[in-house]
Write a protein that binds this DNA or RNA. Structure first.
Length: 692
DNA sequence: GACTCGAGTCCCGCC
DNA sequence: GACTCGAGTC
């Protein structure tokens, strides 16, 4: 099998023991190296189930599983290598050792919306004015603390400003509420596993001893907790292989620390380092642009991607009058290419923020080009699905206050705000979950008679549903549940538009299907198991990234979602100061801009054959039209350092004079749009003919 | 307690 | 522009 590998790849595959760092540039066959290495280990006598490979996304884990399965001839029922994300790995460890971890046997995993309601409650409790600290700000801080393994006490000690002090107190309350509900949030999955390893060394030893080899993908994106976990799992046998590219570290904002990969050799003395620099993905002119751009970053392992292919088309850089025309022209071009025989799935439109795809979606629909918006509003974020899941969680783990709170009056059953508040107050005062107040009583004495009746009806409903789930299969019980709560009637009531009603109802049915699929797939299906899968990114989410990308449709996604993918034709859109680099990063400057630059680099290196980079000269934001400023990266990728520097200074000036909001500025950007060599059919020519 | 309407807010990326 | 929240009304 080694014949299909180049010499560097072969070296990485054949180094079978000891610490190994594979510095893999974009498109250099990293996945191939990892899967071949796993196959080689097995060939050399390592039992498959004693190999652990950790990825960051479910998509990467699934893909790696499939590739390994294709490579390893396996007897039916023979063990497989354990390939999973950090989060799934930690859930399994915590569920196996729930008692030692101080968790109830069936703990719920809180998602973003649950976290937000906890954050809101915590801020209310300590009377923090909304303009000082919003729930989303608090959650970002908490996540940052947790990914750096900082507990509330430590956060309080470290607080340098009033705002941080308040946030740290809110963090303490947030954590208390989480513990009271016996729940964990996403960051807790990692942090509590680390705590468990620290407090119970026998658990750490047992868990680490399950594996003889550990592989970590995308090592540049590990945060502090993940770094500690990796150490704990591999320090005994030292058979650790990490793979990554410091130039593609784009998750600094959620605690990823690029220094982990930069100092690997110091952490693991005797480590071998292999560099993969031969790029099999992109045409040479595309790589030239990428190399040029990334050379502006300071702290990095020096690398130069070399194209394995010769020839190729020079990337285009285009400016459009506004974002509407940007969308129209790009979609028009894609439509014509499809007419000429290209396949829709060969195209990707990449952007920085989630508000950018809207005009593209409209155009794709109008011009009848099949497309798929990857990420964004997920199936499981839909209101009706969230409602159903809240019921399921309340049934599986009644201590889940967030779930009970959501369904208490959904559909409306006469339990209004006042009643809800009184129940919550009683729960807090008694130090018990909300469900205990409802089910065991006594109900607060000041409840109105009608309210008390409604609450006890609600209790009976949940008990009846729980009994049903005990008796029958999951999908069957969910169908019964939807019926029992009268959800169809609720949808009729809420949505007058029959199309919307239909689409919402279809989503509900889809959930039943997902549950049925899970039931047939899982070895021992349980409601908690189903909810775990969904919380961890839903491997059975038929609308998830992977299956979305398998459809023959143009892919629309953020640069963050695009990492690890490749397309023959890539449109990297909205290259403007304020978007890429984003305003928030311009404010911070320095390393934040470097990360934006890496993001842009990731975008460029997704393209195989043709790359188009575009921007709009004006853009509508909150209903107002504003003139934009070309991104500094456009000039950097062409090696025009001076112009890039000018732009950076202008962007900062705009920020200073407008408290963070770019104002229309007649003088700004009067300079010619970035020079490109538009062919006659270039969208720019056609765009200028349009009057609008 | 449920519903409607208008003012104010939204200001990145995600497992 | 789109969404949320709170005051006012039934």
């Amino acid at each position: 099998m080694a014949a299909r590998l180049n010499s560097a790849q072969r070296e990485a595959v054949e180094t079978l023991s000891g610490p190994l760092l594979v510095l893999a540039g974009a498109g250099t066959g990293k996945t191939r190296v990892v899967t071949y290495r796993i196959a080689r280990l097995i060939q050399h006598g390592t039992q498959a189930h004693r190999i652990l490979a950790v990825t960051f996304t479910n998509k990467a884990a699934n893909e790696m599983q499939q590739r390994c399965a294709a490579l390893i001839r396996r007897r039916r029922g023979a063990p497989r290598p354990e390939i999973s994300t950090f989060h799934s790995l930690c859930v399994r460890i915590l569920r196996r050792n729930a008692k030692q971890a101080g968790l109830p046997e069936q703990f719920p995993i809180y998602d973003r919306a649950d976290q937000e309601s906890l954050a809101r409650a915590a801020l209310r409790e300590i009377n923090v004015p909304g303009e000082m600290l919003r729930p989303s700000d608090l959650l970002a801080l908490i996540s940052h603390w947790k990914s750096a393994a900082v507990r509330p006490g430590e956060a309080l000690r470290r607080a340098a400003s009033d705002r941080e002090h308040l946030a740290a107190s809110a963090y303490r309350r947030y954590q208390k509420a989480l513990e009271a509900a016996g729940a964990v949030d996403f960051d807790d999955l990692l942090l509590r596993t680390w705590d468990l390893f620290e407090c119970a060394s026998e658990v750490r030893r047992t868990e680490a001893a399950r594996f003889d080899h550990v592989l970590i993908d995308e090592y540049q994106d590990t945060n502090q907790t993940q770094y500690l976990l990796v150490k704990a799992l591999a320090e005994e046998h030292r058979n650790l292989c990490v793979v990554g590219d410091d130039d593609q570290s784009i998750y600094g904002w959620r605690g990823a620390d690029v220094t982990h990969i930069l100092r690997f050799e110091r952490d693991w003395p005797g480590a071998k380092v292999v560099r993969l620099e031969k790029n099999y993905r992109s045409a040479a002119p595309i790589l030239e642009l990428a190399n040029q751009l990334i050379s502006y970053n300071r702290h990095r392992h020096p690398k130069q991607l070399r194209a394995a292919r010769s020839g190729g088309v020079k990337p285009r850089i285009v400016a459009f009058p506004d974002e509407q025309i940007e969308a129209e022209e790009i979609v028009g071009e894609i439509r014509r290419a499809i007419w000429d025989g290209a396949s829709p799935r060969d195209f990707a439109i990449l952007f920085r923020t989630n508000q950018q795809p809207r005009p593209f979606e409209n155009e794709l629909r109008r011009q009848q080009v099949p497309y798929v918006l990857v990420g964004g509003m997920s199936f499981y974020d839909r209101r009706e699905i969230r409602d159903m899941l809240a019921y399921l969680r309340a049934i599986a783990t009644p201590t889940d206050d967030a779930a009970i709170d959501r369904i208490l009056n959904t559909p409306p059953r006469g339990i209004g705000d006042t009643t809800r508040k009184r129940l919550l107050e009683a729960a807090v005062a008694r130090g018990v979950p909300l469900w205990d107040v409802i089910s065991k009583g006594p109900l607060p004495s000041d409840l109105a008679n009608t309210a008390a009746t409604a609450v006890s009806e609600f209790r009976k409903l949940i008990e009846r549903l729980a009994a049903r789930f005990d008796r029958s299969g999951i999908a069957t019980s969910i169908r019964y549940m939807i019926d029992a709560i009268g959800y169809a009637a609720e949808l009729d009531r809420l949505y007058s538009d029959p199309n919307e009603r239909l689409s919402r109802w279809a989503a509900v049915e889809e959930l039943v299907n997902a549950a049925a699929q899970y039931e047939s797939r899982a070895k021992r299906p349980t409601l908690v198991g189903l909810l775990d899968e969904i919380a961890l990114g839903g491997q059975d989410d038929s609308r998830d990234k992977e299956s979305q990308l398998q459809q023959n449709a143009v892919a629309l996604m953020t640069l963050h979602s695009a990492k690890g993918l490749e397309f023959p034709y890539v449109y990297l859109v909205g290259l403007e100061e304020g978007l890429l680099p984003h305003t928030r990063s311009i404010e911070i400057d320095g390393s934040a801009i470097d990360e934006e630059r890496r993001l842009c680099y990731v975008g460029i290196t997704r393209a195989q054959d043709r790359l188009t980079v575009s921007r709009a000269k004006t853009r509508r934001k909150w209903g107002k039209i504003r003139e934009t400023l070309a991104s500094r990266f456009l000039f950097e990728m062409l090696g025009m350092s001076d112009r890039a520097g000018d732009i950076a200074r202008q962007a900062r000036r705009r920020l200073d004079t407008s408290t963070g909001r770019p104002l229309p500025d007649k003088k700004a950007d009067r300079s010619k749009p970035v020079k490109s060599k538009p062919s006659k059919s270039s969208p720019r020519h056609r765009a200028s003919r349009r009057s609008r």
